[in-house]
Design a protein around this nucleic acid. Structure first.
Lengths: 228, 228
DNA sequence: TAAGATAGCTTTGTATACAATTAGCACGAA
DNA sequence: TTCGTGCTAATTGTATACAAAGCTATCTTA
């Protein structure tokens, strides 16, 4: 399985990096050639990625990078908002000096990137900031869930961070979140994180839909699932 | 992949049914013989189950049914509590007549089983009740996450529902949850669900640890991960 | 007797071959 | 032109063969 695990990571990275776009076919033979292995470990990697919901493996019809509908995306962002706010609530309850320092450092990095207007760097630092919060929940299982979903959404998150003023607004929201966690105010930390994440989802939905419509009605129209 | 998907389900069922206990080795050759297929689809099934966190696949050392530590279990129950309360919060916000009817029906079934003292049946009906809440969130992605985690915890949940009086207490909690969702009280629904789930985790931890100790201190002692 | 090394057996990982299903395309009819 | 039908090529699914790593038991040595 050594190869299969390495390949799983490599394919996942390629998807995250945007080398394979949503809807692209992940052909076993070409991937095998590209990585210089046989189809066997490629298939094993693809099936694992499929089980994690990263790609769509349709029996007998090959694997493709999943193409979440706007509804799917909204549901994923809403779920992310719930999970992140849970992390924030626990972080506020269980804050340690180490967690505090980690979040502080990540926040400082975001600050620097935002003031330089470097959105690529902000994107990376933003991720560190959020991951610091996940860890601060001191629940590694919950944190792992948060990591996984964060990764799955990263492609969509990146796009909408491009707007300059969103960068500064995001930074301010971070400051508020950190403040609430430090104050030990579980409720406030949860609420602020929830809004922070959900506003990203809404902005993205708007961008995709090309309209400033009511998300409630958009959501309610479909019941299709996404995972496996 | 047709075979592989069927096998994945079959092996998962066997694990849930307790046929394979935590720590048991899932030998590729014996599974292949048992199901009358070659090792290839067996491997594919095992790797998928591994990616979902259902079993532990250690490269070159075979797959075993995962053995979560008490800390892991507590973290999983705590995460389940957070996800379920999120479902309850959304259910209260978005309640429809259909969701209401589904939850009502499931609750009635629980009631009947509880009064007969039929814990096996209550176990099944309880699952339906919780799944009705997940669906009532009208967020299928979140609901899928909840289903998945519920399944992973089912083995541990079953054990502690054996206690007779816990059955009746559980039923009463269900009634309170349903009431809060119907009243549209998001906060109350979330809180009640959170407590309902977490008390199960605590009871289980107590059972496992064989002591009525302080869970906070138990938790804090480890930082080991679980997922993939 | 205990500890360590080694040989042999067991099990996993990868490649390859073949079977089976799907998808694309040409062709013909309405 | 458009829809349906059948054929061909490409792709996936499974089995099998072989290579490589891990495990166990035995034998040697202190």
């Amino acid at each position: 399985m050594s190869q299969a695990f390495r390949l799983k990571q490599a394919i996942e990275d390629a998807v995250i990096a945007g080398e394979f776009r949503p809807g692209d076919r992940l052909d076993e033979a070409s991937l095998a050639e590209r990585f210089g292995v046989s189809r066997t470990p490629i298939r094993e990697a693809l099936l694992q990625l499929g089980a994690e919901g990263f790609i769509d493996v349709r029996p007998r019809r090959g694997a493709i990078v999943s193409v979440p509908s706007p509804t799917d995306l909204f549901e994923m962002f809403e779920t992310m908002a719930e999970i992140e706010s849970a992390c924030g609530r626990l972080a506020a309850r269980r804050l340690t000096p180490e967690s505090d320092a980690a979040m502080e450092a990540a926040h400082r990095a975001c600050e620097a990137a935002a003031h330089r207007g470097d959105s690529e760097q902000y994107y990376a630092d933003n991720r560190n900031f959020h991951e610091a919060i996940y860890r601060a929940s001191r629940n590694s299982f919950l944190a792992d869930q948060a990591f996984a979903l964060h990764k799955r959404l990263s492609a969509y998150r990146r796009i909408q961070l491009r707007a300059r003023n969103r960068l500064l607004q995001s930074l301010q929201e971070h400051a508020g979140i950190l403040e609430a966690i430090r104050a030990g105010d579980e409720q406030l930390a949860a609420t602020r994180l929830h809004n922070h994440v959900l506003v990203q989802g809404e902005r993205f939905s708007d961008m995709v839909l090309g309209l400033a419509g009511d998300r409630r009605s958009a959501r309610a129209s479909s019941t299709s699932g996404t995972a496996k």
